[in-house]
Amino acid sequence: MSNESNPAGRTLTLRVLRHNPQDPDSEPRWAQYELEEYEGMTLFIALSEIRDRFEPSLQFDFVCRAGICGSCGMVVNGRPGLACRTLTSTLPAEITLAPLPVFKLIGDLSVDTGAWMRGMSERLETWIHATEPTDLHNLEERMEPELAEQVYELDRCIECGCCVTACGTARMREDFVGAVGLNKIARFRLDPRDHRSDHDLYQLIGDDNGVFGCMSLLGCHDVCPKELSLQTQIAFLRRKMVRVS
């Protein structure tokens, strides 16, 4: 196991932006906690320790704690990312944590990405639109192996919300579908099982809340924890949508 980059025996200072909107007396404030760092410590471990030892009311969201479920997006030293898989050894000894902006604050580091994502999915109808019901008993429809892999590549989005947080348009337009939404359209467009045409898709994303709202600042692409090709997908979709417009 290599962790040679980890400076042993550091004391970490975690500054956490705190606020409980459920409590009328709560005001947004910075709270500061000190922790002894040890090898392999992640922000999940650090925050859990703070809650167990000093601050039982501290709110944050972890589920898989393995970088798979997308629950723990937060702003770490100014940059959106997944806290669970961030080793403290990759950060300076002073660590600033804030909740993801754009999304509704639940409390402290916890935000409501679920309602946002559901709203986006309902608007863009992010599911397969098939013309025939699936035959469960007979051989499945064939698909080229490479195509299945390409679809999976775009299917890897975990809806963590980091791209929305890093997006200039999303800050200005409340209804912008974000890179997460556009990537989903690219994913279903690629999937032969979805029978929607580009004309159909244009109805969903052919405006400034869709693909034409993107200013190509590409913050989304830079912060995506799954390293999805968001830049390429948005540019490609834009070309296709211009063609049918």
């Binding site: 098939a130 699936t134 008993h137 499945e140 192996p145 299945a148 679809v151 099982r193």
Partner: peptide, 18 residues
């Protein structure tokens, strides 16, 4: 097997035989 096929219809990009 029916479950796999149902999920394929719903868009799961199962890896395929080449």
């Amino acid at each position: 097997p029916k479950a796999i096929r149902e999920l394929a219809g719903w868009g799961v990009p199962w890896n395929r035989v080449s």
